[in-house]
């Protein structure tokens, strides 16, 4: 399940974007800790044992030490797979999650991209079903072209065409059109 072949990973650029994105949070945490440290020193009566800004620096370094390899592990854990019948994703480092959606159940597909993602040529694919507990299967930080291709292939009309191919195509153009099932579709889901 977690090591099944045929899953596509995220591009290298996604790792950089993810590090930038969460790096900004770490910077904010560092600044807040530094302000607290300074505030306690100037306003409080206590005299901390460590020199100024050393404690915030230690905390930030500890966070970075865990976060840097963790981001890589999380990036490597992400994968998606599209076959004739299903769209699947897998993710997670400590708790691994696999999601599968029948292509016939896809209600709509959208591709979104923020400024950071656009600058790196990435986008987020959101595949929505009518399900209540897992209403959307997201793949964050896909290459834009891949996300758009998946959107086209996963859109309900495309899935319908894939599920019910015309038994007697009228021309070669139709049989190999954009709505035809992918030629190099991976093997179906292994139990």
């Amino acid at each position: 399940m977690w090591t099944t072949a045929g899953f596509e990973g995220l591009p290298d650029a996604a790792l950089g974007v993810r590090r930038l994105r969460s790096g900004a949070t770490i910077v904010i945490v560092g600044v807040v800790l530094a302000l607290l440290d300074s505030g306690i020193r100037f306003l409080g009566d206590v005299e901390p044992a460590l020199p100024p800004l050393v404690l915030p620096a230690i905390v930030v370094v500890a966070i970075v030490a865990v976060w840097w390899p963790w981001t890589r592990l999380a990036w490597r854990a992400w994968g998606w797979r599209l076959d004739d019948a299903t769209f699947q994703t897998r993710s997670g480092v400590y708790t691994k999650v696999w999601k599968g959606v029948p292509r016939d159940r896809v209600q709509f597909v959208e591709v979104t991209a923020g400024p950071l993602q656009r600058s790196a040529g990435l986008a987020t694919l959101v595949v929505r079903t009518a399900g209540v507990r897992t209403p959307a299967v997201n793949v964050v930080d896909l290459e834009t072209a891949v996300a758009e291709d998946l959107r086209d292939r996963l859109s309900p009309e495309s899935s319908a065409a894939s599920a019910h191919p015309d038994p007697e195509p009228h021309s070669e153009q139709e049989s190999t059109g954009p709505w035809a099932p992918p030629v190099d579709a991976p093997e179906p889901l292994e139990p």
Binding site: M1, W2, G92, Y94, T95, K96, V97, W98, K99, G100, V101, P102, R105, T129, A130, G131, V132, R133, T134, V137
Partner: peptide, 30 residues
């Protein structure tokens, strides 16, 4: 079924077990 989800943390994976969710379009049944 609208979709399925399988999740397993480290302990579960070590013992070859996992949680399974079968999703439907109803908020009251899954």
């Amino acid at each position: 079924a609208q979709g399925t989800m399988i999740s397993a943390n480290w302990f579960q994976r070590r013992h070859g077990i996992a949680n399974l969710t079968v999703d439907t379009a109803s908020p009251t049944v899954g």
